[in-house]
Amino acid sequence: MRKTTCFLGSILMLIVFSMESQAQQSLADLKNQQKKIKAAVEKVMPATVSITDGTGFGSGVVVTNDGYILTAGHVLTTNPRNRDLTVYFPDGSRAKARPLGKNLTVDAGMCKLIGDREWPYVEIGDSKGVKRGDWCITIGHSGGYELGRTPPVRIGKILRNNNRRMITDCALIGGDSGGPLFDIDGKLIGIHSSIGRSIAENRHAAIDPFLEDWDKLADGKTWGKLGAPNPNRAFLGIRMSEDKARVEEVIPRSAAMAAGVEVGDVVIKIDENQINGAADLVEAIADKQPGSEIRLRILRQNKSILLTAQLKSLAEMESE
């Protein structure tokens, strides 16, 4: 009996591992990746700046040779009179920059260096193509600009990407806000935004929305709201506690209610993701679009059942 259990266990393990195919890496693979990352760091460091409005510090990155800087929207919010910003380069040189627009919902901001010269800048990548498990590089002036210190380099893996927001295990801290997230080739894929409790929860605004809104940002427009839930985000509509996957509430008119989820159900899996609590639920839905279908593996009165739910956005729920 015991043997059988172990055997089944190992089959399950195999299934779990094969779901996420990441080939076992060798030291030689790591050396190749390290070589790319070192080259990328050397290339992008000079364009990674610290930004201050006189009240505090954020980071940013120069993305054009005429001096457009991308940063986090919230870095520009402590500057009500819209004074020019002071920008510090890693080599200690300083310049002034004019604050431009910000989209606070995705935490995107823009400013432009003042002065007719060629600035060091980085190449913009494409955040849509960024995959879970990809290496990424974080640079930022952690803790504010520090004379004689280059901005600390950190590396990590992409854990989530829905092309609006990315979550990585590149640890961030105060002062990094607005700093650049690069792919392994040193192309800009995101801008540092906020952190959660865990060191594996570091949030970055994906770069594509910056490009979509480039003209509006460059025009100095401000819109959106910080920390506001995105009304167009996919939404399941159950409440569970942080550490238990037992459903405590099913929200009326939600996808979960339509699918037949009941209070007391224990959610084991959403698609292939194991669910152990509210955090897992949020993560499992994070990449989904409204309208997409998910499979819920549920334990109800000790029976395993499978439900299918079609996700809705908050806006859809409220309009019904």
Binding site: T55, G58, H74, T78, G143, G174, S177, S193, I195, G196
Partner: peptide
Amino acid sequence: MNYGIAIPG
């Protein structure tokens, strides 16, 4: 949890 990470942020 969501901490903005500018200083003062």
